[in-house]
C-alpha cells in the first residue's frame, strides 16, 4: 500500500512537472486528499474480501461481531493514519509544503483517516457479501464519503492559510460528529451483516 501511495504521488509530481507554477494551493490540497481517498478505498477494500471463508468462520466462533468490527475499525484507522502521514511526507517532499499551521493539519489528517477508515470498513463488509465487490465498493462508498471529504478539504484549507483555530471549530465538530455517527452505526449494524 505504501508503494501505491508513493507511486501515485510520483505520477502526480511528474504530471505537474511541466507547469510547476500552476500548482496553486487549492490544487495542491485537493490533489492530496484525492490521492488519500483512493489509497483508503484500495487499502480497506481488502480488509474483508482478502480473508478466506474458513478463517472468518473461525473468528466468528471466537468472539462477538461487535468486537470484530471495532477491532477492524481501529486497525484500519491506524493503517490509514500511518499511510496518510507517510504519504504527506512524500507529497510535501516532492510537491512543496505550503502549510502554515502544522498542528491543525495533523488533527485534520487524524480525523480524516479515522473517518475514512470507519465508513469504508462497514462498506467493505457490505460489498464483500456481493459478487462484484470491487465495483460495488466504489459505487457505494464515494457518495457516502463525499461530505466527509469536503469538510476535510475545507479544514485543510484553513490549516494551509494559517487561520485562527476558532475559525475551524465548526469543521472539527462536524467531522467528529460524522465519525461518531458512523462508528455507532457500524457497531449496531454489523451483527446483522456477518450472520449471512
Amino acid at each position: 500500500m505504501l508503494l501505491y501511495v508513493v507511486s501515485t504521488v510520483f505520477v502526480c509530481y511528474l504530471s505537474f512537472n511541466l507547469r510547476r507554477n500552476q500548482l496553486t494551493p487549492i490544487v495542491w490540497n485537493t490533489l492530496f486528499w484525492i490521492i488519500l481517498l483512493f489509497t483508503a478505498v484500495n487499502a480497506i477494500a481488502k480488509s474483508f474480501s482478502q480473508e478466506r471463508h474458513g478463517r472468518l468462520l473461525y473468528y466468528y466462533s471466537l468472539c462477538s461481531p461487535q468486537a470484530i468490527i471495532i477491532s477492524k475499525i481501529i486497525y484500519n484507522s491506524l493503517v490509514m493514519a500511518v499511510l496518510s502521514v507517510l504519504g504527506f511526507a512524500i507529497y510535501a517532499f516532492v510537491m512543496g509544503n505550503p502549510i502554515q499551521d502544522n498542528g491543525l493539519f495533523s488533527i485534520c489528517i487524524l480525523l480524516a483517516s479515522t473517518g475514512f477508515a470507519s465508513v469504508l470498513t462497514l462498506i467493505a463488509g457490505i460489498a464483500s457479501k456481493a459478487d462484484n465487490s470491487a465495483t460495488l465498493m466504489a459505487v457505494l462508498s464515494f457518495p457516502i464519503i463525499l461530505p466527509m471529504l469536503l469538510m476535510t478539504i475545507r479544514l485543510a484549507k484553513n490549516a494551509m492559510d494559517g487561520l485562527d483555530w476558532s475559525v475551524s471549530t465548526d469543521e472539527i465538530t462536524t467531522l467528529l460528529s460524522i465519525d461518531l455517527i458512523v462508528i455507532t452505526l457500524s457497531y449496531l449494524l454489523f451483527p446483522y451483516l456477518w450472520r449471512s
Binding site: 457490505i126 457479501k129 456481493a130 457505494l140 457516502i144 452505526l185 449494524l189 446483522y192 451483516l193 449471512s196
Partner: peptide
C-alpha cells in the same frame, strides 16, 4: 438483510 443494513446507514 444486506440492503437493509445499507438503507439504515444511507
Amino acid at each position: 438483510r444486506i440492503s437493509s443494513v445499507y438503507n439504515i446507514f444511507a
